[in-house]
Design a protein around this nucleic acid. Structure first.
Lengths: 225, 225
DNA sequence: TTAGTAAAGATAGTAATACTACCAAAAAAG
DNA sequence: CTTTTTTGGTAGTATTACTATCTTTACTAA
């Protein structure tokens, strides 16, 4: 099965909707490739224009600046994560099973039925790990938040928090535990790869250790009296 | 009591040691002021030169580029945190009391006896919260790590992990729990201020909720069987 | 069929940024 | 005291981050 899904994005994220044209989709595709390859700091609209076979001016017709483009792709990723969460927990009643699925999802270990011609989800995941927090760690975070740019992240966080509350209605920090899970899924993975002594998984070939740590963190916190 | 302390920095962090000259110390002082005021993205060496009453070229004699300067002040902060940790837990034997001190320290709620003429520690703490992770979330993190730039962060993480192990020698993830604490102390604080629905402390006037959450997270994880 | 309109491309230009090369003054060392 | 080293100042370049304008292409609707 090859399901098609169109992710609807907040119109404030772009000047012209990149989903609606060949050039727009190419801009997204090549951004993901380039940001992942060279890092957000070295990524420029000039390089993107060359890669996409167009000009800087044309890219500026879609996105105000490179930070908005980063926010666009990161928000796309969060929105996709929320879709996946809903899709995979739809018929699941046991909150313990839901939590298992959530951890698999945020560590990118869940099989995904959806495909997007112009979006390489694994590359996008890697960008989310390394560059994701840069989308909100800015001085304009409050204005961006007012413009609802981070709604998909907050919705995802809220949905995971609701599962935590379902598991233990008396637990006092469902949202903070949820944002901790979301951030740490990325950070522990980054640390494991690049700064291994900040983790206990330095020599591991796979991500099982990270997953076990996250599960231990969640369950011990939710089960504590 | 007004204790003096000279923090020794890895020589790879600078081209010329800023601690050794009036201009150097002014560069550090004004960087902290400007990065905190305008955010790292809008901070430039030109603006810093104007603020410090010098020229761009003079600043380039001290630091290769603005990212290195950010790394310098963030690493300084980590080093200071480790000094504080050692200083405040020196005569403490009870690991539970040590953990209480650690949480107070990483949330910046511990009284500090040391002063530095040119470093405003509260401003530096705010930079650590918002810009800290940008020092290592780069494509050159591996080379920087080889150059030992992040040693103070790893040492701090290791020291906290050692306390966790002291509290429970059988606990399997002391380092990951330590890096989780260090990151989340900053992130929960940032979220509380700017994206409150990612936390459970949106309406709180103080940081008590964040502190209780972090303690609950640590103790439930360390106490779980 | 053709006139209208919107998207995309081409070209050029500006201000700021990131950095380098080189020069001058002061301090320290022999 | 002269020489060398340190330190700061001046001036430049390439790149980046945009903006403006004009032409071409493409689709759209009378």
């Amino acid at each position: 099965m090859d399901l098609q899904l169109q992710i609807k994005m907040n119109a404030k994220l772009f000047l012209r909707d990149p989903e609606q044209s060949v050039l727009g989709r190419s801009i997204i595709e090549k951004s993901i490739y380039l940001i992942n390859k060279m890092g957000f700091e070295d990524f420029t609209f000039k390089k993107l224009a060359v890669e996409a076979g167009t000009t800087e001016a044309s890219i500026y017709r879609y996105f105000e600046n490179k930070h908005r483009l980063l926010t666009y792709i990161i928000v796309w990723f969060w929105t996709w994560l929320e879709y996946q969460l809903v899709y995979h927990t739809n018929n699941v009643t046991n909150p313990k099973e839901k939590i298992r699925i959530i951890v698999q999802l945020v560590t990118f270990h869940l099989k995904d039925e959806f495909t997007f011609k112009h979006i390489d989800k694994y590359q996008l995941y890697q960008i989310a790990v390394t560059e994701g927090s840069k989308s909100y760690l800015t001085k304009h975070v409050r204005q961006d938040n007012k413009d609802q740019l981070f709604k998909p992240y907050k919705d995802l966080c809220g949905r995971i928090a609701a599962v935590f509350e379902e598991y233990n209605p008396k637990y006092k920090y469902p949202r903070s535990l949820s944002s901790t899970l979301l951030e740490m899924a990325h950070y522990q993975f980054f640390f494991k790869e690049h700064l291994p002594s900040l983790t206990d998984f330095g020599n591991d070939a796979d991500d099982k250790g990270v997953i076990l740590f996250l599960e231990q963190l969640i369950y011990s916190s939710l089960n504590a009296k």
